[in-house]
Computed example of a mutant assay.
Amino acid sequence: MGWQSRTRTLQVFDTELTADTVEWCPIPQWAHVLACGTYQQLLEGDDKQRTEGSAAPSRIGRLYLFDCNPQSSFIPPLTESQRIDTAAILDLKWCHVPISERPLLGMATASGEIQLYKLIEAQQGSSGLECELSTDLGPDRLALSLDWSTGQGESSDVRVVSSDSTGSLTLLSLGEADLTAVCQWKAHEYEAWISAFSYWDTQTVYSGGDDSKLKGWDLRMGCSSPTFTSKRHTMGVCSIHSNPHREHILATGSYDENVLLWDGRNIKQPLSETAVGGGVWRLKWHPSQEHLLLAACMHNDFQILYCQKALADVLQPQPITGKQPHKLIHRLTLWII
């Protein structure tokens, strides 16, 4: 049996553009900091974002930074500390460890760039972001996702993997003053929606694409062919997250509206399959409870999957949140569960 959680809305913030990625800083000292990325496709004839006589971007975005203080019962817990207008943002991920003693936020943009922002102390104790490094993945492509190799807190040989709209993956190495492409390869026939490290073996990378395929890659063996290809999902694979608490456990989500749990040692058959009633844009394991998995579902709000039985007994995880129809998408909502 699943639980029925009691959720209530604490605050709603109008992001104006579509909010498609939100990330709490995973480093304890800065765990009160929240980043939110937005995306908007400009339609032909939409002149509000254009200036006369200039070439306008077809996709625009905005990066928001918030500080959270849930102590007061009278003041909204989220306070906007910064906003940065930019190209459309497809993904955000914080590095799991400080770099040069500061948190680092990675951003994948519609301009084909991976940008890294350093978190700094701004005025009156609030937080701010400052662009540190950026690199271009190549011409005529959108950067669609990124992930860090630091999920187990490993701070040596920090790397980033990114996927893009040409179906390619790019492995990047973070140096003291640069972000350098180590290799780039064609991984999927169509858009490579998602790329992710195995946090337990950072020589292993997973990817998912609009060709409905989930693939694994061993970086030690080169990238000419995957170590496995699964066609278990029936539509584009758009979310992958390695469980940071349980070795070999992997969660994947797809436009086919299903969340699959896998044992990475046997990709022939998933451990479980759960229908969540909406395309699974992002998945996130709970930072401290290994059996809780959050799914951001297109057209069906969010679901929290209780996976304890699935991990222990190969049984199906159960949703524990009541769904609320998601009709307003230009907003950031803070929930208490």
Rank of each mutant, 00 (worst) to 15 (best):
3 W>V: 15
5 S>V: 09
8 R>E: 14
8 R>M: 15
10 L>N: 11
14 D>E: 11
19 A>C: 13
24 W>M: 02
28 P>F: 03
29 Q>W: 06
34 L>P: 09
37 G>I: 09
37 G>A: 10
38 T>V: 02
39 Y>L: 07
41 Q>W: 08
42 L>G: 00
47 D>G: 10
55 A>P: 07
55 A>C: 11
55 A>M: 09
63 L>N: 01
63 L>M: 06
65 L>P: 04
65 L>S: 09
67 D>N: 15
68 C>I: 05
69 N>E: 12
70 P>I: 10
71 Q>K: 14
74 F>P: 00
75 I>W: 10
76 P>H: 07
81 S>F: 03
82 Q>C: 00
85 D>P: 08
86 T>Q: 05
86 T>M: 12
94 W>T: 10
97 V>F: 03
99 I>S: 01
101 E>G: 01
101 E>S: 14
102 R>W: 01
103 P>I: 00
106 G>M: 06
108 A>E: 02
109 T>V: 01
110 A>L: 10
110 A>C: 13
112 G>I: 04
113 E>P: 00
114 I>M: 04
115 Q>T: 04
116 L>K: 03
116 L>C: 10
116 L>W: 02
120 I>A: 10
124 Q>I: 02
127 S>P: 12
131 C>V: 14
131 C>Q: 14
134 S>Q: 15
135 T>E: 03
136 D>K: 10
136 D>W: 12
136 D>Q: 15
137 L>A: 01
137 L>K: 05
139 P>R: 06
143 A>E: 05
145 S>E: 11
146 L>S: 03
146 L>R: 03
150 T>K: 00
152 Q>G: 08
156 S>N: 13
157 D>I: 00
160 V>F: 03
161 V>Q: 05
168 S>T: 09
169 L>N: 00
171 L>V: 15
174 L>F: 11
176 E>I: 08
177 A>I: 12
178 D>V: 01
180 T>D: 09
186 K>R: 13
189 E>M: 10
190 Y>A: 04
191 E>P: 04
191 E>F: 13
193 W>Y: 06
195 S>H: 01
196 A>Q: 14
196 A>I: 04
200 W>G: 04
205 V>R: 03
205 V>I: 12
207 S>W: 00
211 D>C: 13
212 S>H: 14
216 G>A: 05
220 R>M: 05
220 R>K: 13
223 C>L: 08
228 F>P: 03
228 F>T: 06
237 V>P: 06
243 N>I: 03
244 P>F: 02
245 H>N: 07
252 T>Q: 08
253 G>E: 07
256 D>V: 06
256 D>E: 04
258 N>D: 12
258 N>Y: 11
259 V>C: 15
260 L>G: 00
261 L>A: 06
262 W>Q: 05
268 K>P: 03
272 S>K: 03
275 A>Y: 14
276 V>G: 03
278 G>F: 12
279 G>T: 00
283 L>N: 02
284 K>E: 15
287 P>K: 02
289 Q>S: 13
296 A>H: 10
297 C>L: 08
306 Y>R: 08
307 C>V: 02
307 C>L: 03
311 L>G: 01
312 A>Y: 05
312 A>R: 12
315 L>I: 04
315 L>D: 14
316 Q>P: 05
318 Q>W: 09
323 K>S: 12
324 Q>E: 11
328 L>R: 15
332 L>W: 12
332 L>N: 02
332 L>D: 06
334 L>C: 07
335 W>K: 07
336 I>H: 14
336 I>N: 15
